[in-house]
């Protein structure tokens, strides 16, 4: 996925030359909930992305609790799915954002930076979807290393700081991908 489209910014209409798909080919899924500290990271990034009209017009934004069947249902049929979640455990790199892309042959993310903060985790959902042939064309995980997952806690400082940074990065990434897809003649907008 290219990161070469510089026009993705809040309030701006980006990628003017890109073909607008009849239905989105990319879905961004924010896993988590605001009232659970850094577990609300995914939902917060989705909210931040809503400030990018160019993204809102071309990409489906969804919130999810991380339950595998619901995740599979959401991403099935999309050319690309980006999943945003929080992880904990391991190192002390709070606020650091990991990016992992699923190996489509293996159907597994391999070693994850830590347990995700929801349900059985993205890994289990991906493995089940792989067996059931319900993976999207590409599945990419963005996971922030969270610090505070207590109920009622706000996003911790480092994680809150990562929200706008990741929203901007995703904006660039998806709009770049759409522009690249539009440049490649006749590629289907949607399909596994």
């Amino acid at each position: 996925m290219s990161s070469s489209v510089p026009h993705a910014k809040p309030g701006g209409r980006a990628a003017a030359g890109a073909a607008r798909a009849a239905s989105p080919s990319i879905i961004v899924i924010g896993v988590g909930m605001k009232m659970r500290g850094d577990g609300g990271f995914g939902a917060a990034v989705i909210e931040a992305l809503r400030a990018y009209p160019a993204v809102v017009d071309r990409v489906r934004l969804a919130a999810c609790d991380g339950e595998p069947a619901r995740m599979i249902d959401l991403w099935q049929g999309y050319r690309c799915a980006l999943v945003l979640d929080a992880v904990r455990g391991g190192s002390e790199r709070h606020g650091f954002v990991y990016r992992r892309e699923l190996d489509p042959e293996v159907g597994d993310f391999g070693a994850q930076p830590g347990g995700t903060s929801h349900a059985v985790g993205l890994g289990a959902a991906a493995r089940l979807a792989h067996v059931m042939d319900r993976l999207p064309g590409r599945l990419i995980l963005y996971a922030v290393h969270g610090r505070d997952f207590r109920l009622g806690a706000p996003l911790s400082g480092p994680v809150a700081q990562a929200v706008p940074e990741l929203a901007a990065r995703i904006g660039r990434e998806v709009l770049g991908a759409l522009a690249a897809a539009a440049a490649g003649a006749g590629k289907p907008a949607k399909g596994g």
């Binding site: 249902d73 289990a124 067996v131």
Partner: peptide, 25 residues
């Protein structure tokens, strides 16, 4: 050990479960 391994041998059953789940959702 889990639903993924179950699905390898009982794909139609797991598909039925996912379809029912989706109906509820």
């Amino acid at each position: 050990p889990d639903a993924t391994e179950l699905a390898k041998d009982h794909r139609a059953v797991v598909a039925r479960g996912l379809a029912l789940k989706k109906t509820g959702n």
